[in-house]
């Protein structure tokens, strides 16, 4: 399964991905998303599922089914746009609360055996080289923490250049 997390209008997305197959899940903005409130309920109350019920509570499970995760986001300060970041913040039920040490750094243990490739498309008119550096470090860190098998970061002036 491919998961596409994006901040585009659905019509915009269709221009770059005209054929979206049945095995693709789109995570799109529906105007209803709530902030993560840092309660850790997704670890210690309803393990694996976020306690906020707004249609985005299943991100942990969705990631557990993914072979590829594609993120399409406007770039802000070298990172994701608020909606995409909100989705990622709501995705920690994918992991376990418990820690492990790898390469002398702490990370979370996996809840699922599943791993995926991570591909991030950042778009924006004036992405600076400083922002690109931040974006590279960020996606690399995300890939490690989400146990992705590989990661790729690409930059575009406009979303419609994403092929």
């Amino acid at each position: 399964m491919t998961v596409i997390i994006h901040d585009l209008e659905n019509t915009e997305l269709q221009t770059i991905f005209p054929q979206i197959g049945k095995d693709t899940v789109l995570v799109s903005e529906k105007g209803s998303i709530k902030n993560c409130i840092g309660c850790f309920g997704c670890w210690i109350k309803t393990p694996g599922t976020c306690v906020l019920k707004d249609g985005y509570e299943n991100m942990g499970w969705i990631l557990s089914q993914a072979e590829t995760v594609i993120i399409i986001s406007k770039c802000y300060y070298g990172g994701y746009s608020p909606f995409v970041k909100n989705i990622l913040d709501r995705s920690i039920p994918f992991l376990l609360p418990f820690f492990k040490i790898e390469k002398n750094e702490t990370h979370h243990k996996q809840r699922y055996k599943n791993t995926f490739q991570l591909v991030v498309h950042f778009y924006g008119e004036n992405i600076t080289s400083q922002e690109m550096d931040i974006a590279h470090s960020l996606v690399k860190a995300n890939a490690i923490n989400l146990h992705a098998t590989s990661c790729k970061v690409l930059f575009y002036q406009s979303f419609n250049q994403i092929a």
Binding site: G79, Y80, D89
Partner: peptide, 11 residues
């Protein structure tokens, strides 16, 4: 949050 600024602060 997830290696970066939490979404509420980003907004």
């Amino acid at each position: 949050y997830v290696d970066s600024i939490p979404s509420n602060l980003l907004r």
